[in-house]
């Protein structure tokens, strides 16, 4: 469902070429729920933006739902849903209901189907109380539920979630996670999620991609990731350990492949 082959993106900052992402290769099969982890500035957002067609890769090849994101952006938009936790994709000044109706029209979702899906979401995410409120007046938790609803109204095959639980309180986080797990399992949606909250990963994802310095540093199961640092007591420690190790490893040559007892092999 998602394929990246040696995908890279460079930015020119004051005449210096910066590799935000380089030689990124991975595959995500239909129905998988994958977490994409990495420290700030590692290239997670750049990756997400290349997968959704917002940024054009400067090298390599990317396919999402069989389409080249940057060239077939509009066609791809009908098949993917995107949530940016940091900012809303809804219209700031419009009531939530109007925003969702506009999305219905933009995605050409049949009115009856839309009604059914919205009723289902209202039920599961408890939207009823704030459908008439302008988006700018919603609390963060309400806004996030609105954004998730908006991303799912056209029943996308792929859902991309960029930090969907950032800033949410414990209760809201649990609600959002429960909803995502159930809904995506029922519909067979392929999900790629970035997060800094490792409990998101523990609850939702079987597979983990770790991106660091713009490269794929680990690709395997959560247990596999744990096994890379046997002494660690929590998943936080495992990831911190990996971050620290990658920081002390010289940048060139690229970091050596790390052993992964189960799951797909690590790449460098």
């Amino acid at each position: 469902m998602i394929e990246a082959d040696e995908a890279g993106r460079t930015f020119t900052v004051r005449r210096r070429v910066v590799h935000a992402v380089r030689d990124l290769s991975f595959r995500v099969a239909a129905g998988e729920f994958v977490a994409c982890l990495g420290p700030n500035g590692a290239g997670k957002s750049t990756t997400i933006k290349m997968l959704t067609g917002i940024l054009t890769p400067t090298s390599g090849r990317i396919r999402v739902a069989g389409l080249d994101p940057s060239r077939r952006r509009t066609a791809l938009a009908r098949r993917i849903g995107v949530v940016f936790g940091q900012r809303t994709t809804l219209w700031w000044d419009l009531p939530l209901r109007d925003s969702l109706e506009l999305i219905r029209l933009l995605y050409k979702v049949d009115r009856k189907v839309f009604r059914e899906r919205l009723d289902e979401m209202c039920d599961l995410l408890d939207l009823g109380g704030f459908l008439a409120t302008p988006v700018r007046q919603l609390s963060l938790g309400q806004r996030m539920r609105g954004d998730i609803t908006a991303a799912l109204l056209h029943d996308p095959a792929v859902l991309v979630l960029d930090e969907p639980t950032i800033g949410l309180d414990v209760v809201s986080k649990a609600e959002v996670r429960d909803f995502l797990r159930r809904r995506c399992a029922e519909h067979g949606t392929t999900v790629l999620l970035t997060t800094h909250d490792l409990s998101d990963v523990e609850r939702l994802c079987r597979r983990v991609l770790l991106i660091d310095h713009g490269r794929l540093a680990f690709d395997g199961t959560l247990d596999g990731l744990r096994a890379t640092a046997p002494g660690a007591t929590s998943i936080e420690e495992v990831v911190t350990d990996l971050y620290l190790r990658s920081r002390t490893t010289p940048r060139t040559p690229p970091p050596a492949p790390r052993p992964t007892p189960d799951g797909p092999s690590a790449t460098a």
């Binding site: 917002i54 509009t74 938009a77 994709t89 995605y107």
Partner: peptide, 13 residues
């Protein structure tokens, strides 16, 4: 403001 990102993920020009 980053709102262009939101426009680029919609199925419209």
């Amino acid at each position: 403001a980053g709102t262009l990102d939101a426009m680029l993920i919609r199925p419209a020009s």
